[in-house]
């Protein structure tokens, strides 16, 4: 499964980093970074992160 973040609409709420810290994190500049390719065991966390995004910027699939 692929994780896509539309960084144009991301407003850095950081909710994905809380919901799925193994997939989403902030780098030293404060920018969002994420694992682009996840395995099946991570899909539930990724979807929880997608649901937690107030801007609906995360698409899994």
């Amino acid at each position: 499964m692929k994780v896509h973040v539309n960084i144009d609409i991301c407003l850095l709420h950081g909710q994905c980093v809380i919901a799925a810290p193994e997939i989403f994190s902030f780098d030293d500049n404060g920018d969002l970074v994420w694992v682009a390719e996840i395995d099946d065991s991570q899909v539930a966390d990724a979807e929880a992160a997608s649901d937690a995004c107030p801007e609906q910027a995360i698409i899994i699939g």
Binding site: L12, H13, G14, V17, F26, D27, G30
Partner: peptide
Amino acid sequence: GALPATIA
């Protein structure tokens, strides 16, 4: 006015 990374 703080980036989430700084609040983390």
